[in-house]
């Protein structure tokens, strides 16, 4: 019940942000969109507007990664999981209308929050990769946690910024995954 109201508030606030941007979204807007009173909103987010906005960014970021995880869940091995994951993530970021709009018009409100979240995202990604490392996937001397942590760091970095690589091109993504991601990690390379 409580979680349900909380989710409605987060989604209501997200809809407002999509429409008006981060700075112009007020607590009244979010409460109205969720169909609850201002008092109820304060019960869930005692820190008010700032806490709500932080929670929305966190919620949407984690949902983005959940969708990404679902999109690649059936990949047969780590290499194809990474290739598919990077292609999908790159496209989703470019096509994410709300993210792109906020990045263009009010990056100073979004980016500090995303940076503060990076340790949390790294933890999530790392746990995800650890679960997807098959029993025979690792080169000798590489620990599962070490491998998962390394892959998570690179994944987060490439999802955000492709640098010189064209991450819309499956051949380049495959080369990237085989070299920077997996060369030292999987046996027999």
């Amino acid at each position: 019940m409580g979680d349900d109201v909380r989710t409605r508030l987060l989604e209501g606030a997200y809809a407002c942000i999509a429409e008006k941007g981060l700075a112009a979204t007020s607590l009244e807007d979010a409460a109205r969109a969720a169909g609850v009173s201002r008092a109820t909103l304060y019960r869930y987010f005692p820190g008010g507007r700032e806490e709500l906005v932080r929670a929305v960014i966190s919620y949407e970021t984690l949902r983005f990664f959940e969708r990404l995880a679902q999109a690649v869940a059936t990949a047969p091995d780590l290499e194809s999981l990474l290739v598919e994951g990077i292609l999908v993530a790159h496209r989703s970021i470019l096509e994410h209308a709300v993210l792109q709009k906020v990045l263009e018009t009010e990056p100073e409100l979004l980016l500090p929050q995303l940076s503060l979240q990076s340790a949390q995202l790294l933890g999530l990604l790392s746990a995800f990769f650890e679960a997807h490392l098959g029993p025979h996937d690792l080169a000798e001397g590489v620990g599962r946690k070490e491998a998962a942590d390394y892959v998570a760091r690179l994944t987060l970095s490439f999802i955000s910024s492709p640098g010189d690589w064209d991450l819309a091109d499956p051949a380049q993504v495959a080369e990237l995954v085989r070299s920077e991601f997996l060369a030292g990690l999987v046996p027999g390379r």
């Binding site: 820190g47 806490e51 932080r54 929670a55 966190s58 919620y59 984690l62 940076s115 503060l116 979240q117 990076s118 340790a119 949390q120 790294l122 933890g123 999530l124 790392s126 746990a127 942590d149 760091r153 690179l154 987060l156 970095s157 490439f158 640098g163 010189d164 920077e180």
Partner: peptide
């Protein structure tokens, strides 16, 4: 660029801090 990614990643989140998480959707505490 690869080295720059690693440097930035470790400067932002050093390895030994073990940034692990319970897996909940709650934002980190203030």
């Amino acid at each position: 660029q690869w080295l720059a990614r690693l440097v930035t990643s470790y400067v932002a989140c050093p390895h030994f801090e073990e940034p692990r998480l319970s897996g909940s959707l709650l934002p980190p505490p203030r």
